[in-house]
Amino acid sequence: MRTVLIVLFDEVQSLDVTGPLEVFAGAEARHAGSYRIRTASLDGAPVRTSSGLTIVPDHALADVPDPHTLLVPGGQGTRGPDPRLTDWLRDHGPRAERLVSVCTGAILLAEAGLLDGHRATTHWAYCDKLARDHPAVEVDPDPIYVRDGQVSTSAGVTSGIDLALALVEEDLGRETALLIARYLVVFLRRPGNQAQFSAQLAAQTAQREPLREVQQWISEHPGGDLSVESLAARARLSPRHFARAFQTETGMTPGRYVDRVRLEHARRLLEDTADGIEEISRACGYGTPEAMRRAFVRTLGSAPAEYRRRFRPAPLGPIRPEPTH
């Protein structure tokens, strides 16, 4: 029996709580005795989430034994938290076998000194703050979640579900995690090193219409001629002017943007289709499987075939929810 304790406080983000809770509850429903889930606030009093939802905790923090997995959600309540909460985390966090945060819950762990010397992430909007306020933490702003020893941190909101599914997979196996993912109608395909943003969201949208049209063209034609010269002609600019304007308005060079779009498209095809590696490499503009392999290894640390084996599981049969009583 692994106890999972979810810490509650006023102005918590409700989905940071309920997303992981549903994952662990789903695992317990399918494997009775696998998890015991508890929620607790400082005094055991109900808390009001940032969206106005009221959650009634099971316990006061002082009354719960040290858990196997201690999960700290984020939300507006992480700004200027009650010092008693930070003190409790500092005292009890090291006793948990796993420390987990969702979104800005990482800030609470950092303020308790529990992320010092660890690699961690949080919501993209707060990564700079986390790095600035806690220089002993190695902040990685890109992944949707990071696992470093006993400490696991995730980015904004829904990534807490991804991380919880990864923990269930570690505890109970991939098939159980897949069943839960399908029941919740989410994908068990987002690896921790997946970027918080798609290529289109990671870059700013250009202000000038010709450059916006070029961004759209790149996304719709990853296998086309996406050289600077070709894209500049489409924008009716000289190559030099186009490259400078594109970087100024999007914060990314044309080549970098094209690389991200092609990699993202290749990943989707590997995950969602049975197309061959050679066919995908042509469709995404790599030209050869070797060129695509180099791009995958450089960015993701695994070759396309290995990526497909890890993130395109065999289909499962229909889910029949087990009775809860």
Score class of each variant (00 low, 15 high):
residue 132 R to I: 05
residue 118 H to C: 07
residue 40 A to T: 13
residue 83 P to Y: 13
residue 103 C to W: 08
residue 125 A to Y: 14
residue 131 A to E: 10
residue 23 V to Q: 12
residue 32 A to Y: 04
residue 43 D to C: 15
residue 28 E to P: 07
residue 101 S to Y: 14
residue 83 P to W: 14
residue 112 A to C: 09
residue 46 P to L: 09
residue 60 A to K: 02
residue 85 L to K: 00
residue 75 G to Y: 12
residue 125 A to N: 15
residue 51 S to R: 14
residue 58 D to F: 03
residue 24 F to L: 13
residue 38 R to M: 15
residue 122 T to L: 06
residue 83 P to E: 12
residue 52 G to S: 07
residue 25 A to R: 09
residue 40 A to W: 12
residue 30 R to A: 08
residue 85 L to D: 05
residue 74 G to L: 05
residue 124 W to R: 06
residue 37 I to K: 03
residue 83 P to N: 08
residue 133 D to G: 06
residue 77 G to N: 02
residue 94 P to K: 09
residue 50 S to V: 06
residue 121 T to H: 03
residue 23 V to R: 01
residue 112 A to Q: 01
residue 86 T to I: 11
residue 130 L to D: 00
residue 70 L to S: 11
residue 98 R to L: 02
residue 124 W to F: 15
residue 102 V to G: 02
residue 37 I to S: 02
residue 66 D to N: 12
residue 92 H to E: 12
residue 85 L to F: 01
residue 118 H to L: 01
residue 120 A to W: 04
residue 77 G to K: 09
residue 86 T to M: 08
residue 127 C to W: 14
residue 130 L to T: 00
residue 46 P to H: 06
residue 123 H to K: 02
residue 74 G to Q: 00
residue 28 E to S: 04
residue 71 L to I: 00
residue 54 T to G: 07
residue 71 L to E: 08
residue 127 C to M: 12
residue 125 A to W: 06
residue 87 D to L: 15
residue 110 A to W: 04
residue 103 C to A: 05
residue 91 D to F: 12
residue 113 G to K: 10
residue 68 H to L: 11
residue 71 L to H: 07
residue 59 H to T: 15
residue 28 E to T: 08
residue 77 G to R: 01
residue 92 H to S: 01
residue 132 R to Q: 14
residue 88 W to K: 01
residue 102 V to D: 08
residue 101 S to C: 04
residue 101 S to F: 01
residue 80 G to N: 07
residue 64 V to Q: 13
residue 124 W to Q: 08
residue 55 I to R: 05
residue 61 L to N: 00
residue 68 H to T: 11
residue 29 A to P: 10
residue 47 V to L: 10
residue 82 D to I: 05
residue 53 L to M: 07
residue 34 S to I: 10
residue 92 H to K: 05
residue 53 L to K: 00
residue 48 R to D: 02
residue 115 L to P: 02
residue 66 D to A: 12
residue 70 L to K: 09
residue 94 P to I: 01
residue 57 P to V: 00
residue 50 S to C: 01
residue 77 G to W: 08
residue 109 L to G: 06
residue 75 G to T: 06
residue 91 D to C: 10
residue 118 H to V: 04
residue 77 G to D: 02
residue 97 E to W: 14
residue 89 L to Y: 04
residue 103 C to V: 11
residue 115 L to F: 00
residue 83 P to F: 12
residue 105 G to I: 10
residue 33 G to A: 03
residue 51 S to P: 11
residue 72 V to R: 06
residue 36 R to G: 05
residue 47 V to M: 00
residue 125 A to P: 13
residue 69 T to G: 03
residue 63 D to G: 06
residue 56 V to Y: 11
residue 90 R to P: 06
residue 48 R to P: 08
residue 131 A to K: 00
residue 60 A to W: 09
residue 107 I to N: 10
residue 109 L to I: 04
residue 38 R to K: 11
residue 94 P to G: 06
residue 112 A to E: 10
residue 33 G to K: 03
residue 107 I to E: 11
residue 121 T to G: 04
